[in-house]
Design a protein around this nucleic acid. Structure first.
Lengths: 215, 215
DNA sequence: TGAGCATGATTGACAACGTAAAGATTGATC
DNA sequence: GATCAATCTTTACGTTGTCAATCATGCTCA
């Protein structure tokens, strides 16, 4: 399939470039990212990325798509084989932050709508697929434990909490440092967050629709 | 105080530049941000920002600090005069997303540690101050409603959920669009999130420390 | 008053960047 | 074996961040 990765016609440049882009983001941060550096690491001319991906936005969008794909796959994997919906939900939460930390370069791009082509079709597809895994699990929780649970709200809360945790992790570490506490690991946070959230989901008796709860 | 904003010595350039920076981020996004454009809008030479803020990182750090200051002030304001801790917590949540949306340019910078000087002392101070408002409120909730509540975890969950909500808002809107639903407003999300979270906090009977909950 | 000086702002230069256009190289097709 | 499309390179241009050098201004102290 991949012809010798040498010579004028590389044969697999798009993939190599995408990997190189991830590499650059990992080492230089999204800030120090540059198409020319990507080309350098891939050993091609500085205009090669432009040919395959149009512009920097195109390349980063490809990285984001890849990120959502592995996110989806890992969420499915994390939840597979677990019967109890709640345990499955917790496992998915763990999976989310694991993917986020192990593929930080991807994550750094996935939700940066000012940097990627947010209207890309494939991007929307894979993003929706990943979210679907979460929502299905929440639906299972609702079905077994609390039929009145508003699935959409609950799923979005879970997503937001995990995403916020990932983003604020640095700040939390600073807080722990100030308090001279043993720095709580990311996993610990996931554990405690999900515990609290699940409590909320189980005891949710939200009103049918909107009437704002007074006390 | 501010001498005539003309002539060689401007007198108030740092503030003007900071405001111009916010302006640029608002209109061009953090991506299209450039020191030279800031200088252009402020009507000064292209190197003027460099003189006052060192480099782009310095200027953006100043913007972030300003953001945390207004965040702190607004959180205090949002919670003031509300007796019930839970209502106060909800009000603070609303205040958080309000600041985040009304000062999107600031927010776009406040948590981007790759773009600002994350080790800046003043930045850490104002960030901690803002967080303190939240934690104090959660502590009040615990004291009145659930003394066993682990304040730190609860506060961080609230923060994460709101921050995640702000960041994922765009995705949620897409989801709503696909479902042909009336696009849920940000405020609605805040309301539902806080309802769920508060449920969790009130019913929290977390084990003293770590033993993972089986079921 | 006015000379000296620190401060505030500008000018000019340079390397790096993104991107577009034009050119070079290869594999495939007939 | 000529043609052609696809792939990659070269060249070029405008923009950017940052530095050093320079210029302009107000303050201080004699």
């Amino acid at each position: 399939m991949t012809p010798p990765a040498t010579g004028y016609h590389h044969g697999d440049l798009p993939n190599v470039l995408r990997a190189a882009a991830v590499d650059v983001i990992s080492s230089e941060g999204l800030n120090g990212f540059s198409l020319r550096e990507v080309a350098r690491r891939a050993g091609v001319s500085h205009a090669a990325p432009g040919y395959h991906f149009g512009d920097v936005r195109g390349l980063l969008t490809a990285v984001a798509i890849e990120g959502f794909e592995t996110l989806h796959d890992e969420l499915v994997r994390a939840g597979s084989g677990i019967d109890d919906p709640i345990e499955r939900l917790v496992a998915i939460g763990r999976g989310y932050v694991r993917v986020a930390t192990e593929h930080r370069a991807h994550l750094e791009v996935m939700f940066r709508e000012d940097v990627i082509a947010a209207d890309d079709l494939r991007l929307a597809e894979v993003g929706l697929a990943a979210y679907g895994v979460l929502e299905a699990t929440v639906a299972a929780v609702a079905e077994r434990y609390n039929p009145t649970l508003r699935i959409q709200d609950a799923a979005r809360l879970c997503w937001s909490a995990m995403q916020g945790l990932v983003e604020l992790q640095g700040k939390f570490a600073v807080l722990d440092g100030l308090a001279a506490e043993a720095s709580s690991s990311l996993d610990d946070h996931v554990e405690r967050f999900t515990t609290l959230i699940v409590n909320g989901l189980l005891h949710d008796t939200s009103p049918t629709r909107s009437p704002r709860r007074r006390r």
